[in-house]
Design a binder for these strands. Structure first.
Length: 392
RNA sequence: UCCGGGGUAGCUCAAUGGUAGAGCGGCUCCCUGUUAAGGAGAUGGUUCCAGGUUCGAGUCCUGGCCCCGGAG
């Protein structure tokens, strides 16, 4: 069995487990740093390993366009290409096309060029590549083929995310299409399994859509789980809706997924989002927050009963010779002062980004370890109740 | 002393005689399946001083006061 649950929390749906992949075991709940283009920005793979990263997320869409999945296949797969021998989770690319088109749309107001011209059809998603202007279509089958070439350990089906604000009819159609696509993906995946593969141990995860509509979440969860996947990902969350709405979306689909299957919550989230989603039965998470915000100077600090953040760019840190956080084991906290990191950040020095990326990832990884430990020791209930964002 | 150049936002500088702006800094905020070492907003002025010309002066004129460069 690919996923093994080792301990269940008595007061919630939280569980601790182990995901067995072709590139090693992953202890859950787990956080996956986002390495869209085959790199967790600014971090080296040996560093990621040392910090305790178990699995990374890469993106089908980006790697398909550049440098191309054929090249990566030639290199022996993504693990070899990027020299990461741990598990890799690949997103299917559907969400990117949506989110890029949305950004392009925003930009189009002031600049007519750069429109992605995205069209979602039954066959797949067609769009114009931003830089080259070349017309492309990503189909459910192609997305799996690309992921097969990448050789990731977890393959995600191509789904349709209908956008925010949520509209019922639009969401319903997207849910239905996501199911139809999921069927096609399953067939293609089985077909590819019969061939020689970069990674014969690949697992395939279905995606649940349905926005904040309980009946659509239920429908999506039932339809997707009926198809039978190795695990499930919940998508279409944390896209603008309130946290409560997101928790409700998770609550309304998790009961319809098989209890013993792995559940990933796509794109989430803040530390408290993660604690709450674990309580609702999610096993893994991926989010750009710790890495992106590190590059923007936001530092996560662990506190009793939660956490707080600080903006290292603020001038109040100019002469602050204390470490970012005295109880942190990251390199920056062990070796440098806030004043020094503030100086590096304000000077535009690359090292600031590297240091803060490590710091924030250590914060997230330690949080996950704490969650797992709390579940195993049956102390998660208290953690879940008290954990909050204590501000700046 | 003389000859040039110059004094405008915290800093560096813009602004045909017609509503004084920008970049940076400072301040506040944002970032959730990364087009992001990114983005938004607010604040910030006795335009060196005193006169004058003009409907109107940062801008033109006169006189000061400072700064920079060159010459002696």
């Amino acid at each position: 069995m690919a996923f093994e649950i080792t301990k269940k929390d008595k007061s919630s749906r939280a569980r601790a487990g182990i995901l067995h992949t072709a590139h090693g075991d992953v202890m859950t709940p787990v956080f996956l740093p986002v390495g869209t283009k085959g790199t967790v920005k600014s971090a080296r793979n040996d560093e990621l390993k040392n910090w305790g990263v178990q699995m990374v997320l890469a993106n089908t869409y980006h790697l398909w366009l550049q440098p191309g999945d054929e090249l990566i296949k030639k290199a022996g797969g993504l693990h070899r290409f990027m020299s990461w021998d741990g598990p890799i989770f690949t997103d299917s690319g559907g969400f990117q096309i949506f989110s890029l088109s949305k950004k392009a749309q925003k930009r189009a107001d002031s600049d007519e060029r750069n429109s992605f011209n995205v069209k979602v059809k039954e066959s797949g998603v067609s769009f114009q590549s931003g830089s080259s202007g070349e017309k492309k279509e990503l189909t459910p089958e192609l997305s799996v083929q690309i992921q097969s070439n990448l050789g990731s350990d977890v393959v995600l089906v191509l789904d349709e995310f209908p956008g925010y604000p949520f509209e019922y009819e639009k969401t319903k159609k997207a849910v239905e299409r996501t199911t139809r696509w999921a069927k096609r993906v399953k067939e293609e995946f089985s077909r590819l399994k019969k061939r020689k593969q970069i990674n014969p141990g690949q697992m395939l995860f279905g995606i649940i859509q349905g926005a904040s509509f309980p009946d659509l979440r239920k429908k999506s969860a039932e339809e997707i789980s009926a198809l039978g996947f190795d695990g499930y990902a919940i998508g279409g969350v944390a896209v603008g809706e309130s946290a409560e709405e997101m928790y409700k979306a998770v609550d309304t689909c998790v009961p319809f997924l098989e209890e013993n299957k792995f559940r990933h919550l796509l794109g989430v989230g803040t530390p408290e989002n993660i604690v709450q989603a674990v309580a609702r039965g999610c096993d893994s998470f991926d989010c750009v927050i710790p890495t992106r915000e590190a590059r923007h100077g936001k530092v996560y600090i662990s506190e009793k009963n939660g956490y707080k953040t600080m903006d290292i760019a603020k001038s109040k840190f100019k002469e602050d010779l204390r470490p970012l956080y005295k109880n942190c084991d990251c390199f920056a906290c062990q070796n440098h002062s806030r004043a020094y990191i503030h100086h590096l950040f304000k000077s535009g020095e690359i090292l600031a980004i590297r240091l803060l990326t490590e710091h924030n990832l250590r914060f997230y990884l330690k949080l996950m370890a704490k969650i797992r430990e709390a579940i195993i020791e049956q102390k998660f209930s208290a953690m879940k109740k008290n954990f909050k964002n204590l501000g700046i």
